[in-house]
């Protein structure tokens, strides 16, 4: 049976038939590792993040890496053309990806990307929003909840000031942006279920 890991972070979604499931999984791991490392580097540059306990840093990164990557790579989802460009540079049609078994998750990713892109965030706003997403105090397993909450609150304050400053006439823009966070959580859960199904298969 062919194994297809049609993830935009996978360099080789359509695998060679002679590869073992273990080899396919290892190739996939090598494909997404640089992106994960970049998320860690990003986290290190969030003021205050490195002051959190190492365990809390790891917990936040483990729980939030997918969401950070989703925000970062939302532009890979071309809603108008109904295509996704993978990190390999190859562009796949939505139809082809659905044929690879990526139906429901992909539709929700497109929907999220469209909503996020419609806010037309500046690079600075997007970076701060990503920091807020990563420093989420409600992730399970946080040891020093107070420290994470304080950091998240300060990041949200700065984000609110920044968003208000760039669009003073649109008071709802900040609210709309924060409402993307539950959408990301839903996507994260769907993605986790997908990953688990591959492992079980």
């Amino acid at each position: 049976k062919d194994i297809v890991l049609a993830c935009p972070m996978n360099m080789f979604p359509q695998t060679e038939p002679n590869k073992t499931p273990q080899e396919i999984w290892e190739d996939f791991s090598l494909s997404f590792t640089p992106a994960v490392r970049e998320v860690v580097e990003f986290a290190k540059h969030i003021p205050g993040f490195s002051a959190l306990s190492e365990n809390d840093q790891v917990t936040l990164l483990k729980a939030g890496t997918f969401e950070v990557l989703m925000v970062r790579f939302a532009s890979l989802f071309n809603v108008k053309e109904q295509t996704v460009t993978f990190i390999s540079g190859t562009t796949y049609s939505l139809e082809a990806l659905k044929g690879m078994g990526m139906g429901g998750l992909l539709d929700t990713m497109f929907e999220f990307s469209e909503k996020l892109n419609s806010l037309e965030l500046t690079a600075e706003e997007l970076g701060l929003f990503t920091a807020v997403v990563l420093v989420s105090a409600d992730r399970s397993g946080i040891e020093n909840l107070n420290s994470v909450e304080l950091l998240q609150e300060s990041l949200i304050r700065v984000l609110r000031a920044l968003v208000s400053k760039s669009n003073p006439c649109d008071a709802s823009r900040f609210t709309k942006l924060l409402l993307k966070m539950p959408d990301l959580r839903t996507l994260n859960n769907m993605h986790s279920e997908k990953l688990l199904s591959f492992r079980i298969d």
Partner: peptide
């Protein structure tokens, strides 16, 4: 419901990347 992040080996990648920073930090 097992942990997909562990399945991906994500914790290992994250810990190594975080430690990389400590090694590079000037004394």
């Amino acid at each position: 419901f097992s942990d997909p992040a562990s399945n991906l080996g994500l914790e290992d990648i994250i810990r190594k990347a975080l430690m990389g920073n400590l090694e590079e930090r000037p004394e």
